[in-house]
């Protein structure tokens, strides 16, 4: 949907909100909710994305040893194997459940990056 349509819809709803506030008659001022919502949204977006973010954001390898991984292979589908045996740190644990999977993806794992369902 184009930007102008979205703005028009919003403006229409501002009018509805102001009327509702006047009818109910207990708001700080008519249009209080719309003002806080829209100005808050716009203000925070401008400040965060326009001013603070560009100042404080760096490339992902800024802390070279702590570069965030693209893929967390140790957390991915961690339950498919026994969590203890997987890391080899605790003998004696029973095998845990492969049968608790909740079939969220019936299409299966043709394009699994590793491991797989």
């Amino acid at each position: 949907m184009s930007l102008s349509v979205r703005i028009a819809v919003t403006a229409g709803l501002v009018v509805v909100g102001v009327v509702a506030d006047i009818v109910v008659g207990d708001s700080t001022f008519p249009g209080y909710g719309a003002t806080i919502g829209l100005l808050g949204c716009l203000g925070l977006s401008l400040i965060a994305k326009g001013a603070v973010g560009p100042l404080l954001q760096r490339r992902e390898d800024y802390y070279p040893a702590d570069t965030p991984p693209e893929f967390h292979d140790d957390l991915y589908q961690a339950h498919l194997a026994d969590p203890d045996a997987r890391h080899g740190d605790a003998p004696g644990g029973g095998h845990v459940t492969g049968d608790t999977a909740a079939g969220d993806d019936p299409t299966g794992g043709a394009d699994a990056p590793g491991g797989g369902a």
Binding site: G17, D21, G37, G40, L42, S45, K49, G53, E60, P68
Partner: peptide, 25 residues
């Protein structure tokens, strides 16, 4: 109303609110 208009604000701005793969100081 506050939440509705926040939602509408996001609807207007959402193309500009995507994040980049960066770390924050």
């Amino acid at each position: 109303q506050v939440l509705l208009f926040t939602g509408l604000g996001f609807w207007i701005l959402h193309e500009r609110l995507g994040t980049k793969p960066k770390v924050s100081l």
